[in-house]
């Protein structure tokens, strides 16, 4: 009866519903992302994909249901506390800090996401990473392929690189789960390839990924499992091929009648 997830699991969304006024945006959505698993979240426009991600990230409070991470409830926590507990995310409409460099993005994220929160010394320190943080920043820069532009202000980078900055900012500090909201949107073929490469390195580090995407080749390439959302409900889930062969999915999402 009790849907309490096991302690060592990653992310669990348990019968989450969201209503805006009278309209139901999500209805009883259940979803699990295990550590080291990449789950694709697909569905027609307006199915509630971003709404679900916002519920997990804390940008939105669900009307009912609950969200768990590693066996602990995230309900009622503001976004910054969830971030410190291991929820990281990227945004459909990028939310970077234009005047700061790539390195500063990663530094801020590495320090702010640290458990335990702020310290008084942060008022008077020199705003520089300590050796541990420096190493972590270097690794992350390498991972997302921005090492050669680490000291460029993000305002000088094109959209594709900005999406990678967001991804790097999300990955630093080893989150338990990364919520990626249409990360390939607006990227060209080559940038997509980089993105896919980065995403596929994550399971080995034990990081779970919830990936919202319309780029089906990308989904089939990187995802272990696919969940299809339609009008706020999960209508299918499982392996990519099987799900895409489902007549209901074909009707709702692919626009073809099986």
């Amino acid at each position: 009866m009790d849907p309490l997830p096991e302690r060592d699991r990653g992310l669990s969304v348990v019968s989450v519903s969201v209503r805006f006024g009278g309209i139901a945006a999500l209805e009883g959505v259940d979803l699990v992302v295990d550590p080291g698993e990449i789950v694709g979240l697909v569905g027609p426009n307006g199915a509630g994909k971003t709404t679900l991600i916002n519920c997990v990230g804390g940008q939105l409070v669900q009307s009912s249901g609950s969200v768990w991470l590693g066996g602990e409830s995230l309900d009622g926590l503001p976004p910054f506390r969830r971030a410190r507990r291991g929820v990281a995310r990227t945004f459909q409409r990028i939310a970077v800090f234009p005047e700061l460099t790539v390195r500063e993005h990663l530094f801020i994220a590495a320090r702010a996401r640290r458990r335990g929160g702020a310290r008084w010394s942060e008022l008077v320190d020199r705003g520089r990473p300590d050796p541990d943080e420096s190493a972590e920043i270097a690794t992350t820069l390498e991972l997302v392929g921005l090492a050669d532009r680490a000291d460029a202000a993000v305002s000088t980078l094109p959209l594709g690189a900005c999406r990678l900055v967001e991804l790097g900012r999300a990955l630093i500090g080893r989150p338990t789960v990364v919520l990626a909201d249409e990360p390939s949107s607006g990227l060209d073929a080559r940038e997509r390839a980089t993105l896919a490469t980065v995403l596929r390195t994550l399971p080995a580090q034990g990081i779970g990924v919830l990936l919202v995407e319309h780029d089906l080749p990308m989904v089939s390439l990187v995802c272990d499992r696919v969940v299809v959302l339609h009008v706020g409900r999960v209508i299918a889930q499982g392996a990519f091929q099987a799900v895409m062969a489902d007549p209901a999915v074909r009707r709702a999402y692919l626009g073809q009648v099986a």
């Binding site: 990230g57 940008q59 503001p78 976004p79 910054f80 506390r81 971030a83 410190r84 990281a88 995310r89 945004f91 939310a95 970077v96 800090f97 234009p98 005047e99 700061l100 801020i108 994220a109 702010a112 996401r113 640290r114 967001e166 900012r169 999300a170």
Partner: peptide, 10 residues
């Protein structure tokens, strides 16, 4: 620059 982005990193 971006309250949304800042909160999302903690």
């Amino acid at each position: 620059a971006s309250p949304l982005g800042a909160e999302s990193v903690g």
